[in-house]
């Protein structure tokens, strides 16, 4: 099984947007390596013909009618929502400059 290196932790931290300190990188590398080693045990069971289960519940086709805000729908108050934002301006959420593009 692959062991988790410090570089790998740094990559995982980037993907998950965590600005980890150097000390954390070292600390988590050791711990994640130990945990990944332990959870890798799932590979011990023979599962060649076993389908995966993402949900224990046997439901399909749960649909909602295309009806605007039926009774029981939480209605938000814009002023209240924006008041909870770290910053707002012009009835919009104000966010720092965006670098990347998608």
């Amino acid at each position: 099984m692959p062991s988790i290196t410090r570089e790998e932790v740094a990559h995982l931290a980037r993907l998950s947007r965590l600005d980890l300190s150097d000390a954390e990188l070292d600390h988590f590398a050791g711990q994640l390596d130990q945990i990944v080693g332990a959870v890798a045990r799932v590979g011990e069971l023979p599962t060649a013909d076993v389908p995966p289960t993402s949900h224990a519940q046997p439901l399909t086709n749960v649909f909602r009618a295309d009806v605007v805000r039926p009774a029981g729908t939480p209605i938000l108050d814009r002023a209240e929502v924006l008041a909870q934002a770290p910053a707002a301006e012009d009835d919009r959420f104000r966010v720092p400059r965006i670098l990347g593009e998608e």
């Binding site: 069971l45 599962t47 995966p52 289960t53």
Partner: peptide
Amino acid sequence: DAYYGQAQKVRTL
């Protein structure tokens, strides 16, 4: 496949 996928198979078992 080795981790998340395999865990979901164990879930089936």
